[in-house]
Design a protein around this nucleic acid. Sequence first.
DNA 1: CAGTCGTGAAACCATGTGGTATACTAAACC
DNA 2: GGTTTAGTATACCACATGGTTTCACGACTG
Lengths: 118, 118
Amino acid sequence: MVSDRAPRLDLVFHALAHPARRAMIRQLSGGERNLSELASPLRMTFPAATKHVRVLERAKLVRRRISGRQHLCRLRAAPLREAMLWAEQFRRNWEARFEALDSLLDEMKSADQSPRGR
Amino acid sequence: MVSDRAPRLDLVFHALAHPARRAMIRQLSGGERNLSELASPLRMTFPAATKHVRVLERAKLVRRRISGRQHLCRLRAAPLREAMLWAEQFRRNWEARFEALDSLLDEMKSADQSPRGR
DNA sequence: CAGTCGTGAAACCATGTGGTATACTAAACC
DNA sequence: GGTTTAGTATACCACATGGTTTCACGACTG
């Protein structure tokens, strides 16, 4: 069982919570890339992009290796696996026990009391 | 395919990036809970806890229904499923292509160039 | 050796996050 | 009807995040 209060999960989920970093991950899933390659498609300055890379490194989702003047980044699966393992614990429950009811209840009491954006 | 720049993913991953919110999710996986039940085990004030609940609601991971003076929260699987779907795209690649090499390379070049904390 | 390319680092800014304390509203109970 | 009880709202704080600009450095290139 993956504990709820594992600081690693904080880092991993936080790393995944930004579109730029997710885009980097997608790019890296095609193989090693250097920082310029990661930064160029991102509509932000280079320093901003490298900050995102460091967030990914902190979460150990990315490993960097220096070759000459290039910093090559590569993905690492382990942290993502741990994160998905955590989620998997509950997903099973939900789908089995709640999800079926959910859509029913949705229609039965569609926004009758809480004016929360739905 | 789940896009990288889906604001929903931002919200979901961010919601999962805090131990208190993950603890809430675990608790809710056992069934409906009201806010006091969610807050009490959390070593923080009640208002702080309800803020976390709202983060979960914003990510649509939690739905609230008001019954008398109690606010009952229930989990919703769909957003989590979408998040895991996103991750799954890459996890497969990584495990197949990189992970095997990773541990080897780890030992071969253990911290010979980058003095990054490892 | 000079220049350029890839990157790091620092300073700075606006905004968001996580937390507190406090005051308020509304339902439930005697 | 007054008092708990469950929860909201607001103000405030310290700190992190996400972004910029600017400058510096080391590695290749001609």
